[in-house]
Design a protein around this nucleic acid. Structure first.
Lengths: 148, 148
DNA sequence: GAAATATATTTGCATATTACAACTGTTGTG
DNA sequence: CACAACAGTTGTAATATGCAAATATATTTC
């Protein structure tokens, strides 16, 4: 059947997509003077406004020990701050500093501009289809999570 | 206009896609006892059959110094081998060993199976559209590479 | 109310990745 | 033959990664 051929083609396109997105992100973080891992953390903190270390680690699929050290480095660079939760001192609350917010907003802006350019490039009569297709693909991937 | 809203939605879906693919790959490499970077290298070597360090570094968007060390670790684990090109001794030829080939084929097989499951999950009348949409998206991304 | 248990985070340790700069060896050119 | 260019390696240093053990705090049990 043709499904094998098509599914391999699907895989190949996904590989290329991932490759290109990786390159995009690397050029993005090069401008900020932080590392990729720090950038991922900073963006998630920016989006959440306040977040625990545990939650951040979960979002980024990292161990708490790794997360703790990445956050340490961001604190040292004065991009984020750590506060102890007054209600439960086991918890820390991570949030962006003013300079961290600037970097975060810069990343958001340039990524939004980039995706606007990508979107605008898509032929108008194909846009709905592309958006729907991505939705379907995300759902297909979600429903087939690694149950090896 | 609605383009801003749509392009942000596009970005959000791309983020989710990348997140899920990252998780997929991490579960994949966990089974092989190698690291993510080594896995990427191994797969590219497997696909190329023979490749120079320079070409491999370019494919993976890494510096030659980094590539050299990752390849060293794969050589130490006896998964790849390095041979000096007899015609031009500046070059090395990197290829998989027998055990490297086994791991490579295992990865290929499980990834192919995974994408077949994803593909089969997509409603039959939507498959053509999904494939075409990915093609369009890849082209849009290619045409908008980071010219900040 | 004290002890045991659970939870959140940190730290020691070890390995790998990453890139810059400098280096070594080889090939091509004038 | 000397110099330039190319491919790859190595020293150095910073960062990332996770396991195991540790610390501090909160909750549960008796």
């Amino acid at each position: 059947m043709n499904n094998t051929k098509d599914s391999r083609q699907l895989r190949e396109m996904m590989r290329l997509l991932e490759r290109k997105l990786g390159i995009l992100e690397e050029s993005e973080v090069a401008c900020c003077g932080i590392t990729m891992a720090q950038c991922h953390a900073l963006v998630e903190v920016g989006r959440a406004k306040n977040i625990s270390l545990n939650e951040l680690a979960e979002l980024l699929n990292l161990k708490n020990s790794t997360m703790s050290r990445t956050v340490n480095n961001l604190v040292n660079s004065e991009l984020v701050k750590r506060d102890i939760d007054p209600q439960d001192r086991r918890y820390i609350t991570i949030s962006l500093t003013e300079s961290g917010t600037k970097i975060y907003e810069g990343i958001e802006e340039s990524m939004n501009l980039y995706y606007k350019r990508v979107y605008d490039w898509i032929p108008e009569d194909k846009r709905g289809q592309v958006m729907e297709s991505l939705q379907i693909l995300l759902e297909a991937i979600s429903k087939n999570e690694c149950c090896k």
